[in-house]
Design a binder for these strands. Sequence first.
DNA 1: TACTTACTACTAAGTATTTAGTAATGAAGC
DNA 2: GCTTCATTACTAAATACTTAGTAGTAAGTA
Lengths: 139, 139
Amino acid sequence: MSHYCYKNNTMAKTPHDLLSRRERHIMDILYRKGRATAAEVMADLSGSPSYSTVRTQLRVLEEKGHVRHEEEGLRYVYVPATARSAVRRSALRHLVETFFDGSTEKAVAALLGDSSRLSEAELARIAALVEKAKKEGGR
Amino acid sequence: MSHYCYKNNTMAKTPHDLLSRRERHIMDILYRKGRATAAEVMADLSGSPSYSTVRTQLRVLEEKGHVRHEEEGLRYVYVPATARSAVRRSALRHLVETFFDGSTEKAVAALLGDSSRLSEAELARIAALVEKAKKEGGR
DNA sequence: TACTTACTACTAAGTATTTAGTAATGAAGC
DNA sequence: GCTTCATTACTAAATACTTAGTAGTAAGTA
C-alpha cells in the first residue's frame, strides 16, 4: 500500500495541521464564507458556544497569525490570514495522499462518480479541461 | 459567496470532525497505510513522540471507537474502525464545501489544473469517465 | 533458570484548549 | 446627560489533550 512520496516525518506542515479542533472549525467557516463577524462564526459553530467564547478564540487565532480582522464601523470582520488558494491546494494534496493513494486520477474519478452532482454543462466544461490537459502534455 | 446548502449548526459530523490534532494525524496515517503497528505510526508522526505516548493515544482512540486492533503474533496491528471509503467521501464533500463553494466542477478543475501530475493514460481514462457520466445523464 | 528483547497496560503530571463570566467602550435615542 | 444596545478586552477556571514514566508479560536464548 501507500505509494505516496513523502518520507517519514516530512509531511508538509500546512497551517491547518497545527490547529486545534475548534480552531479548525472556525477556519473552515471563514474559508467557506470568505469573511465573517464573530456573531456569524458563532452561528455556524456546533455546540452553541457562547459569544464570548467565540470572541476569545478569534483573538487567539489572530495572535497565532491565522486570522486578521478589519474594523468595519464598530465591529470586527475576520478574514483568514493565508490565501484560500494556498490552503486549498495543500488540503487537496493531503486528501489525495491520505485517501486516494496519492493518485489524482482516483480522486477525479470519485468526484465524477457522484455524477448526480454535475450538470450537463459542467460535464461539458470538464471534458474541455481534460482535452486541454491532454494537449499541454501530461506527465 | 457561499452557495453551499447546509444550514447553521447542521454540518454533517464525520468522525474526523471530532478528533483532536494528534488523533487526526494518527488516523490519517492509518488511512494512508491501511494498517500499522504502534512503532510504524510513531515513525510517521512529527515531533518524535515517545513510543509510550503513541501507545497511549492508540488506546484512547480505540476506547473512543475510532480504531480497533488485531493481534498479530505478539503485537497489535491497528486499523481504522470506519471504512476508508466512507471517510473519504465525507472528506471530499467537506473539502468541496469549504474551498470550492460547493462546486464539484471547481474541484475537478483544480485537480486537472495540476496536469503535470497526470499521465496521458490517466487523462484518457478520465475522459472516458466524463463520457460515461454524460450518458448516465447529469443533474 | 536467568537474562534480554519486544511488546503491552496503567498512571500521573504538564500543557493546551475551551469555556464563559465580568468589565470597558462607544454610538444612538430619549 | 443618562440609559440601552452592541460591541470588544481581559481574566480565570474547567476540561481535554498530550506526554512519558514505570511496571508487567511472554518469547527466545545462553
